[in-house]
């Protein structure tokens, strides 16, 4: 190689190195690069606890007391001509669909070994983990290799009377002797990262809360179109044929959940790995 060609090659290499390594434009963000991070198990435990509170609120105060006040709830609640709200399992599915639309890559699913819909029956690793959950009544964590998702299953307890009565009386229910506090199923949560920085954890909690807003909001929107719509505002079904507005529902949810969630968030942030 003659001197001229060597000089030219060296110059080209220098230019290429500058182009590729000198970060005159700032490097693209990477969500989990550096900084403190919270194990995903802890993050998912926080949103699972929020979910328990939201679903108990919906099941007890809206479905349970609403049914006595004249409101209906059905699997077909979105079908034309059906004047009903979503059953608790479908409330969760609405929240899960909202999560799917959000930029937060959090997955949420509900299943059981005795589901009303056969399509929700656990199999494979979830079936094995669920057997352990029924025995210990504690969550199970694992890594789903094919989807590369960190996964957690949390027991779904029969926390309110309507859970038990509806599942025992449903014509498609494969089990009709449920009692209060049974482990009726499990919520499965998944996330693509093993740990998240505290700010990402906050985004996850916000996305889940937005899911509850969307789920309940979809019902309220539907209820407005009923031939005889319930009054929507400050009052709850325990007072009669009423539905709380989305804001009132979420305020009650926040009253029940925010203190414990804040404690868990602080604990998680304090215990975050450097």
């Amino acid at each position: 190689m003659n001197r001229q060609r060597f000089t030219l090659s060296a110059l080209l290499l220098v230019v290429l190195a500058i182009y590729l390594f000198v970060t005159a434009p700032p490097p693209l963000d990477e969500a989990d690069s550096g900084g403190r991070s919270v194990p995903i198990e802890r993050a998912l435990a926080i949103v699972a606890a929020e979910n328990d509170i939201a679903r108990t609120l919906y099941t007890q105060e809206i479905v349970g007391k609403g049914s006595r006040a004249g409101l209906s709830f059905s699997e077909e609640w979105r079908s034309d001509g059906v004047e009903a709200g979503p059953l608790p399992a479908l409330f969760l599915r609405e929240a899960a669909a909202s999560l799917d639309r959000s930029p937060v890559p959090l997955g949420l699913f509900l299943g059981s070994d005795f589901p009303i819909s056969p399509a929700n029956r656990f199999s494979g690793v979830q079936s094995e983990k669920f057997e352990t959950i029924k025995r210990t009544r504690q969550p199970e964590f694992f890594y789903a290799g094919d989807t590369e998702l960190h996964t957690a299953m949390f027991p779904d307890f029969a926390s309110a009377a309507p859970c038990v009565t509806c599942h025992n009386e449903h014509r498609e229910s494969p089990k009709t002797d449920w009692v209060l506090n049974d482990v009726m199923g499990a919520t499965t949560w998944s996330y693509p990262r093993a740990s998240v920085p505290p700010e990402e954890l906050l985004a996850i909690v916000a996305a889940v809360r937005n899911g509850f807003r969307d789920a309940y909001g979809a019902y309220v929107e539907r209820a407005r179109s009923f031939a005889g719509p319930p009054e929507i505002g400050e009052k709850w079904p325990e007072d009669g044929y009423y539905l709380p507005s989305v804001e009132v529902f979420l305020a009650e949810f926040a009253r029940r959940s925010s203190s414990s969630t804040l404690d868990r968030l602080i604990e998680a942030a304090e215990g975050a790995d450097d």
């Binding site: 997955g107 979830q126 979809a218």
Partner: peptide, 25 residues
Amino acid sequence: VACHDRPDDPHAAHRFNEPRFEDAR
């Protein structure tokens, strides 16, 4: 989904990320 969002799609693609659908995946 930006154009085809369907709130009650019984076979929404995201649901198949659940572990039990491994064989189907």
